[in-house]
Amino acid sequence: MVKIARLYYEFGYKQEEIAKMEGLSKAKVSRLLDKAHKEGIVEIKVVYPQQEVRELAKELSNHFGLKKVVVVPVIVDHPDAVRNDLGKAVANFLHEIIQKNDVLGVSWGTTLPFVTKQLSTVEGKDITVVQLNGGVTKNYLASQSGIIVEGFVHAFQATPYMLPVPTIVDSIELATAIVNDSNVKQAMILAKQARIALFGIGRASYDSVLVEAGYFKKGKYDELLAKGAVGDICSRFFRLDGSIVDEELNQRTVGIGLEELANKEYSIAVANGEEKAAAIIGALRGKYVNTLFIDEAAAQKCLELIN
Rank of each mutant, 00 (worst) to 15 (best):
E274V: 08
Y266C: 03
L224G: 01
T253L: 10
Y215W: 04
A229E: 03
K220H: 12
A271R: 07
L210D: 04
N263R: 15
V254P: 07
A262V: 10
R239L: 10
R285C: 14
E275S: 13
A271I: 15
I281K: 04
K264P: 08
R236M: 15
V245S: 04
F216C: 00
N250S: 08
L284P: 05
N263S: 15
E274L: 10
L224R: 02
E212C: 00
D241S: 05
A262E: 04
N272A: 15
V209L: 12
N263E: 15
A278V: 13
G257Q: 15
Y215M: 03
G257C: 05
K287G: 01
K276G: 03
A229S: 12
L240Q: 08
I280K: 00
E259K: 10
V254G: 08
G257I: 11
K220E: 15
G228T: 02
E223A: 13
E265L: 09
Y215H: 02
V270I: 15
G214A: 05
D246A: 04
A269I: 12
A277M: 09
V270T: 14
F238H: 11
E212F: 07
S243L: 09
L224K: 00
V270E: 01
I280V: 14
E275R: 13
Y221D: 01
G286T: 09
D246V: 09
G228F: 08
L261W: 07
E274C: 05
I280L: 02
E275G: 06
